[in-house]
Deep mutational scan, measured.
Amino acid sequence: MQNSHSGVNQLGGVFVNGRPLPDSTRQKIVELAHSGARPCDISRILQVSNGCVSKILGRYYETGSIRPRAIGGSKPRVATPEVVSKIAQYKRECPSIFAWEIRDRLLSEGVCTNDNIPSVSSINRVLRNLASEKQQMGADGMYDKLRMLNGQTGSWGTRPGWYPGTSVPGQPTQDGCQQQEGGGENTNSISSNGEDSDEAQMRLQLKRKLQRNRTSFTQEQIEALEKEFERTHYPDVFARERLAAKIDLPEARIQVWFSNRRAKWRREEKLRNQRRQASNTPSHIPISSSFSTSVYQPIPQPTTPVSSFTSGSMLGRTDTALTNTYSALPPMPSFTMANNLPMQPPVPSQTSSYSCMLPTSPSVNGRSYDTYTPPHMQTHMNSQPMGTSGTTSTGLISPGVSVPVQVPGSEPDMSQYWPRLQ
């Protein structure tokens, strides 16, 4: 039975679970980093996980050691009161100082060594604690504590007292930064006198190289990059290397530039699409467009005044059976039934097929058609009795279509119309 579990990581490298990497692998990681390889490249070359490479390099940059820390136990506290007071002093002298600059000053002034120097995250935590204590304490208590930490007896009751030896409130920041720059020169002199001055200088240079600022491109470089971006948004590694040799930039910087440029292009394309949609959409909808001609068919113009009344309900007709019959029939052209047409008796099958359309009241044959006459024609229609054979009435077949029909004066039988409509 094995005491430890061995495995293979996602890159194909072998590791022992819970145990640190061998010293030979750690040394190779540092050597590759000094030669300029990126952590992701080191991870692929040595088949070590990216997190492990970053952790080893980060500890090497901070402490200069590649040895693993002790497994188990607690780390001794490195942010001692003396170190905290120095950090507060540096922050007062130059409020814009960075944590890694404070760390360098602690090393250069001999406050800490490589073994007990606090990390950048520890210094940031100390600065946050100082800021929170400043908010919790009152103004007087804060000034007393700062005077105690600074070891001075001057008056701290006013704002300019934060910067000793100065009279203009805006000047101390520059003086403090100048003092810090002077301390940086002392850093070089002190570290050069040490035993491991060369190694420390190499480590600091490598650290500065990794902690780079934003790349500033010249106009020629920007023009070359934009020209390549117009050709393709995704250049391959050969195109990037050719462009890197042409404009004297690292291939990694060119790759990052193209990634950022593609993101910018997507944002601009989104804005262009929004403007295009806004320009195509009308600002207001016309009133006429809300009524579609496919839904509402136009009603033909009436030929006679009587045809303006298109349904039985508008003429005072309360018989719903006839109203439904007229509205359900398709529109037909106007025609006239003459008196000489043969009077065919209704076929029983045809009569039964339209039995649902006729009223059940037996008085329908005896009703006159003056009910369908509009009010303004009552006088004219009353002067001509319906009993004469020459009287013409208008029957409504569908809305908007008038059918003048000659009705025999002897017997106005409704059943004569249905064979004609089939």
Rank of each mutant, 00 (worst) to 15 (best):
18 G>V: 01
130 L>P: 06
145 K>A: 14
148 M>L: 10
139 A>F: 10
63 T>A: 03
135 Q>F: 12
35 S>K: 10
31 E>T: 07
127 L>G: 12
2 Q>W: 11
93 E>L: 10
65 S>L: 05
70 A>V: 08
133 E>K: 14
14 V>M: 10
116 N>M: 11
15 F>H: 04
100 W>F: 07
66 I>Q: 02
120 V>K: 15
64 G>Q: 03
21 L>E: 01
21 L>H: 05
46 L>R: 02
114 N>D: 09
120 V>M: 12
39 P>C: 13
27 Q>T: 10
30 V>E: 01
42 I>S: 02
74 S>F: 02
43 S>Q: 00
73 G>W: 01
41 D>S: 08
3 N>H: 12
7 G>C: 15
48 V>E: 02
50 N>S: 15
146 L>N: 13
92 R>V: 12
42 I>C: 03
50 N>K: 15
68 P>K: 04
27 Q>P: 00
52 C>E: 01
68 P>C: 05
43 S>F: 00
24 S>L: 10
11 L>E: 06
51 G>V: 00
148 M>R: 14
77 R>C: 01
38 R>D: 01
3 N>F: 12
19 R>S: 03
104 D>L: 14
149 L>F: 11
140 D>L: 11
105 R>P: 02
64 G>V: 03
26 R>W: 00
33 A>D: 07
15 F>L: 03
46 L>G: 02
90 Y>M: 09
48 V>M: 06
132 S>W: 11
7 G>Q: 15
5 H>C: 13
126 V>Q: 03
85 S>Y: 09
145 K>F: 09
34 H>I: 14
100 W>V: 07
114 N>C: 13
75 K>E: 02
127 L>F: 07
118 P>D: 02
6 S>M: 15
34 H>N: 14
119 S>M: 05
72 G>D: 01
23 D>M: 15
137 M>S: 13
126 V>F: 00
82 E>H: 11
42 I>Y: 02
92 R>F: 13
43 S>K: 02
45 I>G: 07
138 G>A: 12
60 Y>F: 15
19 R>Y: 06
31 E>F: 06
107 L>P: 08
148 M>W: 13
67 R>K: 15
32 L>Y: 08
93 E>K: 08
19 R>G: 02
79 A>E: 01
56 I>L: 08
85 S>H: 11
34 H>T: 13
105 R>K: 11
11 L>N: 06
21 L>I: 04
92 R>L: 08
85 S>G: 11
11 L>Y: 13
2 Q>E: 11
20 P>T: 01
108 S>F: 10
38 R>Y: 03
113 T>H: 14
150 N>P: 13
121 S>L: 00
113 T>P: 12
149 L>G: 13
94 C>L: 13
148 M>Y: 14
37 A>Y: 15
7 G>H: 15
19 R>W: 05
74 S>T: 03
38 R>K: 06
45 I>R: 13
19 R>P: 01
4 S>P: 14
37 A>W: 12
42 I>N: 01
96 S>N: 12
31 E>S: 08
119 S>Y: 15
40 C>K: 07
83 V>R: 04
9 N>T: 05
119 S>R: 00
118 P>K: 00
68 P>Q: 03
73 G>N: 02
17 N>Q: 15
45 I>Q: 14
47 Q>S: 09
138 G>C: 13
62 E>Y: 04
133 E>Q: 15
66 I>G: 02
118 P>T: 04
81 P>D: 07
75 K>F: 03
107 L>S: 13
81 P>S: 08
58 G>S: 15
64 G>H: 05
21 L>A: 04
109 E>H: 10
106 L>I: 06
72 G>S: 04
76 P>H: 03
92 R>N: 10
131 A>R: 15
93 E>T: 13
85 S>L: 09
2 Q>I: 12
111 V>C: 08
107 L>K: 15
62 E>V: 10
57 L>R: 03
133 E>S: 12
101 E>I: 09
49 S>M: 00
137 M>T: 11
80 T>E: 02
124 N>H: 14
142 M>H: 15
19 R>A: 03
10 Q>K: 15
112 C>I: 07
106 L>K: 01
62 E>F: 03
88 A>K: 04
9 N>C: 04
94 C>V: 12
79 A>S: 14
77 R>E: 01
144 D>Y: 10
55 K>A: 07
21 L>C: 01
54 S>Y: 08
126 V>H: 04
27 Q>N: 08
144 D>V: 09
43 S>R: 00
146 L>M: 15
16 V>E: 07
90 Y>V: 14
30 V>G: 01
79 A>T: 15
141 G>N: 08
63 T>M: 02
60 Y>M: 00
84 V>E: 04
10 Q>H: 07
24 S>H: 14
70 A>G: 10
11 L>T: 02
37 A>Q: 11
145 K>H: 14
98 F>A: 07
19 R>D: 03
56 I>Q: 01
20 P>N: 00
7 G>E: 09
36 G>N: 08
63 T>V: 04
108 S>L: 13
144 D>P: 12
74 S>Y: 02
66 I>K: 00
29 I>V: 04
46 L>P: 02
28 K>R: 10
58 G>V: 07
98 F>N: 04
64 G>D: 02
82 E>Q: 11
6 S>W: 15
36 G>S: 05
107 L>R: 15
98 F>I: 07
20 P>D: 00
50 N>V: 12
43 S>H: 01
66 I>D: 00
48 V>C: 07
83 V>H: 04
42 I>R: 00
104 D>V: 09
45 I>E: 08
42 I>Q: 03
92 R>H: 10
127 L>D: 03
133 E>A: 13
12 G>T: 03
110 G>Y: 09
77 R>I: 02
41 D>Y: 06
29 I>T: 03
7 G>W: 09
78 V>W: 02
32 L>W: 05
113 T>Y: 09
50 N>I: 06
115 D>H: 15
3 N>L: 11
65 S>R: 05
50 N>A: 15
41 D>H: 08
114 N>W: 08
92 R>A: 10
64 G>E: 02
126 V>A: 11
74 S>E: 01
121 S>F: 05
27 Q>G: 11
86 K>L: 07
20 P>R: 01
